[in-house]
Simulated assay, not measured.
Amino acid sequence: MAERADAARNRRAILRAAEELLEAHGFEHVSLDKVAAAAGVGKGTVFRRFGSRTGLLTALLEERAARIADGIEGAAAPLGAAAPPGERLTAFLAALADLAAHNVALLAAHERACAEDKHADPTYRRWHEHVTRLLTEARPGLDADFTAHTLLGMFDAELVRHVVADGGAARLGASVRSVAEAVLNGEAATPEPGSPPD
């Protein structure tokens, strides 16, 4: 069902207000009350739409990552199905590096909101499943599940903040690409879960 025009307008206003509060004042100042006031809507509107601060931050991150999601679901290279898995993986991680470098405050807030179990967060799970699938195709025999968690660990907000502060988005992107290529070109396969050591 298509979103009503007023609902879509409220959604945009709420997400914009949340982002502005986050950038100006930090995670502690992003409450449903403050977001509602800044967006010019009732708190109930925010609650019904997003449920909680965690839901609100998740929606904001998903909006920022929408272009990446569209690329994954399409066919066009380098993100889409037409490209080889290794190329898709490198392109995906590069896109995440760009997203992370320009949205550090959002990443940090999202991590805090999901601190109890970030691996269960819907956005993280989608990213992990995608990376795991590509690694399985590109590097048979690798522990793709563990390696996917390891690669996504490069986007820890404090690590991103540190790297970007000392080299900018270009350094983060180049470093992420270097690690991805090392994983894809590695000769030794990581044992699959449950495999006995050699």
Rank of each mutant, 00 (worst) to 15 (best):
T58S: 14
S52F: 09
T54C: 08
A66R: 15
A59C: 03
A82K: 08
A66P: 03
L57F: 10
T58A: 15
R48W: 13
L57Q: 02
T54G: 13
A69P: 05
A65P: 03
I72H: 13
L60Q: 03
A75Q: 12
A76P: 08
L56E: 02
F50G: 00
L56P: 02
G42M: 03
T58L: 12
A39I: 06
F47V: 10
V46S: 07
R53H: 01
A81M: 07
G71E: 07
G42H: 09
A65R: 12
A37L: 13
E73Y: 10
A38R: 10
I68C: 10
E73D: 14
G42Q: 00
A39D: 04
A82Q: 09
A38K: 09
G44Y: 00
L57W: 03
L61D: 03
S52C: 07
G44D: 06
G74P: 06
L79H: 03
D70E: 15
S52P: 03
T58D: 15
A65I: 10
V41G: 04
R53M: 06
E73G: 15
F47S: 09
A81E: 14
A37H: 13
A81W: 14
E73P: 01
G42E: 06
L60G: 07
A77I: 01
A36Q: 00
A76R: 15
V35G: 02
E63N: 09
V46Y: 04
F50Y: 15
R53G: 04
A75L: 11
L79E: 02
V46H: 03
L60V: 04
G40A: 05
T58N: 13
E73F: 14
D70M: 11
G42L: 00
R48C: 00
A39R: 06
T45K: 05
E62P: 00
R64C: 11
G80S: 07
A81Y: 06
A76M: 04
P78W: 08
I72K: 12
T58P: 05
D70S: 14
A75T: 13
R53F: 10
A38P: 02
A39L: 04
A82S: 15
A76I: 11
D70Y: 11
A38F: 04
G74N: 09
V46F: 04
L79K: 01
F47Y: 11
V46D: 01
G40E: 04
R67S: 15
G80E: 00
G40C: 03
A38W: 03
V46C: 00
P78R: 05
R64Q: 14
K43A: 02
A59K: 02
F50V: 01
L61W: 11
F47L: 11
A76S: 14
T58Q: 15
A76N: 10
I68N: 04
F47I: 08
A59F: 10
G74H: 11
K43S: 01
V35Q: 04
A75M: 09
A77E: 13
E73V: 09
A38D: 06
A39H: 06
L56V: 01
A59W: 08
A38C: 01
G80M: 02
G71L: 11
V46K: 02
